[in-house]
Design a protein around this nucleic acid. Structure first.
Lengths: 226, 226, 226, 226
DNA sequence: CATGAATGAGTTTTCATTCAT
DNA sequence: GATGAATGAAAACTCATTCAT
């Protein structure tokens, strides 16, 4: 947790820059959120100290409370903003005029790219993923649900034919699996950065797509069979 | 200060239940671990209070420290014990004389069953999965690595032929994906308990196994293709 | 757990004295140090409770930690401040234009006076003197060394002639003895306050000075002699 | 404080020697006191843990309480035993048929020798010397008083003539000074072990004896004089 | 508007002491 | 007689949150 708080006795002699007062609220809020995402990603919700966030944001703690409310509300605001950014990124990658499978792949790739280029953002979304019983649990599962819906949609559109679309509730468990597989592969990627987002997403696409295709077309694995 | 620590002579008036005192160490350690797993699963490491654990274990805090050491050591002990239980469960399900694909499926099913029947155990293993920078990080990643190795082994054996085994490092990213997919599907299952472990594991098996099989046999998805 | 830390809205009913809030840091630090010296003197390092110090300083514990750091750092700060005060007192009493022996005597007298008038200050410096293996041991021995050096200097200057100054390392054991003798006499004084600092310091001066003078001039006591 | 308590999980497989049960009480008490002196000397009263003492004594804690009572009583017993040993040592060195000054010197030398050869014993007597407000304060000051009386007696007998003995109350402050000087010199000795007890005691004897002799004979140092 | 000063309520950990076996 | 098991009561330190300036 470092030493972020405790204004030790040796106050720096130079009064330092007066910390640029009187900025418009919007700018302040962005500063705060940026810092908070950084710190929450680094330490997680509970280990993150408001002092460290206020230090990182170069703003005093009371301002954080004034602008963003409690620690919990601040965290929720972070999740919301970063979730939107990620989902927008994916949404933009999935151009409507592409074929459904291409769309799916582009979406996966966009996900890998976003996470790789916005580590803190991804981490803050991911780190607390399994936390339960916390006040912010609702927000977290909401964003996960949005992500899941997005993938479910892509997968359903890609797998059904025009005549026989696959119903969402049937696709859902596979979408869940795909999401989990993606996250897991991402973690693996961070430890093996020699791959590209392109390659990674292709592998995942292959794994799931082909398997899913087989299933849709009735080719199945059965125990004892083969 | 001074002598304040000397315990009072007058005990509580109500005799209360005698709480079966003076149990052997081994028994107490088990009690403590059971309670700790429960509490850590419920709240996570940092939000779990030693007080709550001691309450749940029906023992005083000093005994926990005497027997299991610090909070961190206690957590590590939980992880270790539960990880062993889970991995043993899977290991026993994977009988050596089965065909490789059957083994993989049995393993998946055992995983689903174990997690379903031992929620707290699974949760404690899973909840802190992405935590970093904590003292117990080492223990957590060790157990994840063991799990990953187990799956990698199963997948590699199942996908190669006797003549042409697939090298582990090539299988790894897929194993990672499979693990993630399984975890994610499990979460989904908890919200849709109408399925059986059998059905779930079969679905996952199909998804991954068929896809993987396609890849191994050279059937690939390519962007722009079809 | 959870949100337990959020402070209650309803403050204590009794308005009580307003306790002059929001004082500048400098003032608070002095208050804290004053209280800490008092409490450390009374109970010693380990038996002193931060709670008692914070009560004595009329401030909450967190402020102590914020301003002065850990208990150990607080103690070190006390030692440092009080050691400086004492050594300054002696230094000022030892005017440069006096004869060396007069300087030595004035120094001794200043020591007795300071200790008598600043009991807590002296006690905090003295009480832990023989403690070892504690984290603050370094600070304690540093101040003792400074005191010893001061006395060694006075003694050396006073005992040698201009032509033949006595080397410090030869004087040192006697300086150590003198310091110990002074401390011990001081303790004795506290139980027999009918004496004056003047009288006490004169006695000690006589004891050591005459004896030392004899030795320097070659008059020695030898066993079996007379 | 080491790790003296907490019987960690890895109980040694070998049942170890059964800790020789059923020893006569006297032997047990000696074992305990020996261990306690060692531990108290090492850590001081408050930092010494009963667990460490019981470990060192190779006896269980309840036995300590049964035989010696509370921690405080145990400490008092240590002080008492070791004080007696030291004072006896000095007493034996001071043979009645010697000349008074020779007696004084022998006493000093015996003190230095004892302390040097029985570090723990000396340390336990010395370490808590300045502690106040503790329950054992009485015992500590009693032993100091006995030591002071012993020295006062020696000094008085040595300094007066048969016809004109110096009254004790006049000698006392000097005796206090002598004791303090001795202790201080002893500390210094521990850091400069190249000297012998003989040399050290001679130095101290010279310092104090000659000075005292001068005073008794009316040679005095006066401020402003010389 | 901005912030340094302030704190209530915890948290983990330790220790002298005693009881049941 | 001897001990492992057990605990009440603290102690140091932290943190989200708010008020006075």
């Amino acid at each position: 947790m470092q030493d972020a708080r405790r204004p030790r006795a040796e106050r720096s002699e130079t009064p330092a820059k007066p910390r640029s007062r009187r900025l418009p609220r919007q700018v302040r809020e962005r500063q705060i959120l940026d810092a908070a995402v950084e710190v929450f990603a680094r330490h997680g919700y509970h280990e993150a100290a408001m002092d460290e966030i206020s230090d990182a944001a170069e703003i005093s703690k009371p301002m954080i409370y004034t602008y963003l409310g409690s620690k919990e509300e601040l965290f929720v605001a972070c999740i919301r903003r970063e979730a939107n950014r990620l989902i927008d990124s994916i949404g933009q990658a999935v151009e409507a005029n592409l074929s459904p499978d291409e769309q799916l792949w582009r979406g996966l790739r966009a996900f890998f790219e976003y996470a790789n280029e916005n580590r803190a953002s991804w981490t803050v979304l991911h780190r607390q993923a399994r936390t339960q019983g916390q006040p912010f649990t609702a927000e977290l599962s909401e964003w996960r649900q949005r992500a899941l819906d997005l993938v479910t949609g892509l997968l359903a559109r890609a797998s059904g034919t025009e005549q026989q679309p696959v119903p969402h509730e049937q696709v859902q468990p596979f979408a869940a699996a795909l999401v989990g597989a993606g996250e897991s592969m991402l973690d693996w990627w961070f430890d093996h950065p020699e791959y590209t987002a392109d390659a990674l997403s292709m592998r995942l696409m292959n794994l799931v797509w082909m398997g899913f295709g087989d299933m849709v077309q009735g080719r199945r694995w059965k125990p004892g069979g083969d």
